[in-house]
Design a protein around this nucleic acid. Sequence first.
DNA 1: AACACAAACGCAAGTTACTTGCAATTAATT
DNA 2: AATTAATTGCAAGTAACTTGCGTTTGTGTT
Lengths: 143, 143
Amino acid sequence: MKSDQENQLYSLLRKAGMKATPGHLTILSFIQKSKKPISSQDIINGIDRHLDPATVYRCVTKLKENGIIRQIDLRQNNAHYEFFDMAHHHHIICTGCGRIEDIEDCNLETVHQQILGQTKGFTQIKHHSLEFYGLCKKCNSKN
Amino acid sequence: MKSDQENQLYSLLRKAGMKATPGHLTILSFIQKSKKPISSQDIINGIDRHLDPATVYRCVTKLKENGIIRQIDLRQNNAHYEFFDMAHHHHIICTGCGRIEDIEDCNLETVHQQILGQTKGFTQIKHHSLEFYGLCKKCNSKN
DNA sequence: AACACAAACGCAAGTTACTTGCAATTAATT
DNA sequence: AATTAATTGCAAGTAACTTGCGTTTGTGTT
């Protein structure tokens, strides 16, 4: 007897042409549950069952290639990921402590066409990444 | 007899409170001359005189801390940097070959205030990073 | 011009974040 | 149930830095 959530992730993987292995399911479920972008190390440390680090890195790469998760650059020393199937949004990151908050409302898609009209070298924009860097209240009051 | 460019970089470093050492001058000059964001490895391989990799990493960090150069995330496997004293702009990166082009016109600064009005956790936005990812003409025609 | 001192440097060793090769296992198709 | 290609764990390897330390060198001061 599988939970609804398990079934949902199962078909998500199969639709993307991936096997529904314990590794894929465990990692994907963990990313989906997370409220913030997480790193591969976070996954390795956070999951219930043991998975070899090499396996985690390989799975994350596959999930990214198949468009199930999305990579986020937080200007930290490793890549972060979040579930792809959520409303398009961006992040604000505290340069003091690394705290992350979501920023909604982004109408940069209209800018894509505008850019393609100007550039000579590019024919296609697939996506963009926009991050804001600042100080959170806690870190701001420390000074 | 020093060149104008050398004098300019010298005073730029001194104003920032940094020593005008061969390492700082060589690296800063190399970054300034470069048309694109470059990595520490690019610097190590590209400079005329020999500098130890550790020295290059340390200098780049210092130059960044002092606001003389700026870090760019290109979703490649290492950090890239560019001279700070150039018009604010963004980049479009080819996901096929890594080719980079500058995107001008950015009026996201107005968005900063808007975001600060909405968020509860942040008090200050220092800067933002916006990168577009797509396919350049060359890579697009390969398929 | 010489002195003092903190900052910068080179070298070697260490660390972090992955990546790769390979044999054993396993999910999905037949 | 058999087949097969993808996945996994383990071990070894690599890329991109980072750190410790003794020596050298800019810079402000005498």
